[in-house]
Simulated assay, not measured.
Amino acid sequence: MIRKIVLYIALSLTLITVGYFSFIYYIPYSEGVRSGELIKISHKGFVVKTWEGELSQGISGAQIFAFSIMDNETAIIEQLKQNQGKKVTLEYEERYKTFFWWGDTRYFVTKVSLEK
């Protein structure tokens, strides 16, 4: 009897954990597009390195869009490196939450295009 209860509790906790991580990983909160001058792209971190960037959307320093890039998005990382200092358009997904091994922000770039 007690073994069944412990088994049900363990199974429930496992399903809740898997559901939570799946929700965070697969379900975006919003999607959008931002344009501006790409002012920073860096690979930072002490133990876990993540790709982070900043996009200036105006004259004021208050209009900085901070974003992250997933490690497996090597093509996007290379495009950002090549277009540093140029005007770009970024398509992104906003997540409900993030994990420390993904990046510092909830905004993840999915596409980069150079403005003409």
Rank of each mutant, 00 (worst) to 15 (best):
S12E: 03
S12H: 07
L13N: 01
T14W: 15
T14G: 13
L15S: 08
I16G: 05
T17C: 10
T17N: 09
T17Q: 12
V18F: 14
G19P: 12
Y20P: 03
Y20H: 03
Y20V: 02
Y20A: 01
Y20W: 06
F21H: 01
F21R: 00
F21A: 02
S22Q: 11
S22R: 05
F23K: 00
I24T: 06
I24G: 03
I24R: 01
Y25N: 09
Y25K: 08
Y26E: 09
Y26T: 10
I27Q: 10
I27S: 07
P28Q: 02
P28C: 04
Y29M: 08
Y29L: 10
Y29Q: 13
S30G: 11
S30Q: 12
S30V: 10
E31S: 08
E31V: 04
G32T: 04
G32C: 07
G32K: 04
V33D: 14
V33P: 15
V33E: 15
R34E: 15
R34I: 14
R34Y: 15
R34T: 12
S35L: 08
S35E: 12
S35N: 09
S35K: 11
S35F: 09
G36F: 08
E37G: 07
E37H: 12
E37W: 11
E37N: 09
L38S: 03
L38R: 01
K40N: 14
K40F: 15
K40V: 09
I41T: 05
S42C: 12
S42K: 04
H43G: 07
H43F: 15
K44C: 11
K44W: 10
K44I: 13
G45S: 02
G45V: 00
F46M: 11
V48A: 08
V48E: 10
V48K: 02
V48Y: 08
K49W: 08
T50M: 01
T50A: 03
W51H: 02
W51M: 02
E52A: 02
E52I: 01
E52Q: 08
E52G: 03
G53H: 00
L55Q: 05
L55A: 04
L55W: 07
L55D: 03
L55E: 07
S56P: 12
S56E: 12
Q57T: 11
Q57G: 13
Q57H: 15
Q57M: 15
G58F: 13
G58W: 13
G58L: 08
I59W: 13
S60Q: 08
G61A: 11
A62K: 07
Q63I: 09
I64L: 09
I64E: 04
F65P: 05
S68Y: 00
S68M: 02
I69F: 05
I69Q: 01
M70F: 11
D71K: 03
E73P: 03
E73F: 06
E73Y: 04
E73I: 00
T74S: 13
T74I: 12
I76G: 03
I76P: 01
I76A: 01
